[in-house]
């Protein structure tokens, strides 16, 4: 033990890998679903980040998942933008869920402009949440949205088909909705925490 090597020399030589405690993103965006908040590392949506929601089909509860958040945001007079939704939002239905439709902007964009419009809204810094349904979005496009969400301090929600699950995604949170055999929600990726091994049953979401 005569060779005394200073620790800093080892670190500078990059021969020592330093384990880091996973940084838990500070979140202040509860989803409004207690069972889901409990399993997410940030205790809710990852703030100023992209969340990806993967669906087997339309109408399996994807809006019920985000409507409590939209209701909370619009009631505090923040703006929410919906980019090229697959159907028209039903005003009466959204209002029944507590959303103030006067704060909700709907954008009809042709397919090639969906990502551009989404990025503009996220980057502007004046939208609290942006919901988008891009048909064709690759890894790079989603990364752009993630960066834009961080720049504009906005919640970004991207709704895509379940078939994209096998592709890697830069989203901070990936959720997969399942309708059969029973409605449930899988957390497929969550930054800053271990992925829960069990699905969150959708029936329990209501509670």
């Amino acid at each position: 033990m005569n060779a005394v090597v200073p620790l800093s020399a080892l670190l500078d030589a990059r021969q020592v890998w330093r384990g880091r405690a996973p940084e838990v993103p500070a979140g202040d965006q509860p989803t409004g679903w207690r069972a889901l908040d409990a399993v997410l590392p940030a205790g809710g949506w990852p703030d100023a980040s992209l969340s990806e929601i993967l669906l087997p089909a339309d109408g399996v509860g994807e809006l019920r998942l985000v409507l409590p958040t939209l209701a909370r945001l619009t009631r505090s007079r923040r703006n929410v933008v919906i980019v090229s939704p697959p159907y028209a939002p039903c005003v009466a239905g959204w209002q029944q869920q507590g959303v103030d439709m006067r704060q909700v902007d709907i954008i009809e964009a042709p397919e090639k402009d969906v990502l551009w419009a989404t990025e503009q809204c996220l980057r502007s810094g004046s939208c609290a949440a942006v919901l988008a349904w891009p048909r064709q979005a690759d890894d790079r496009a989603l990364r752009r949205l993630q960066v834009a969400a961080a720049t504009g301090q906005a919640l970004a929600f991207v709704f895509r088909d379940r078939s994209h699950l096998s592709n890697a995604s830069p989203a901070a949170l990936r959720l997969e909705l399942e309708a059969l055999p029973r409605p449930q929600l899988w957390v497929r990726k969550c930054r800053g925490g271990a992925v829960p091994t069990r699905p969150v049953p959708l029936a329990r979401l209501a509670g």
């Binding site: 028209a88 939002p89 005003v91 009466a92 209002q95 439709m101 006067r102 909700v104 902007d105 709907i106 954008i107 009809e108 964009a109 042709p110 402009d113 551009w116 419009a117 503009q120 809204c121 502007s124 004046s126 939208c127």
Partner: peptide
């Protein structure tokens, strides 16, 4: 922001719904 989107996507592309 709404003006910027309208300028590229068309005058009717950005709207709000009321009941």
């Amino acid at each position: 922001l709404r003006e910027r989107l309208r300028a590229r996507l068309g005058d009717r592309a950005v709207y709000r719904l009321g009941s």
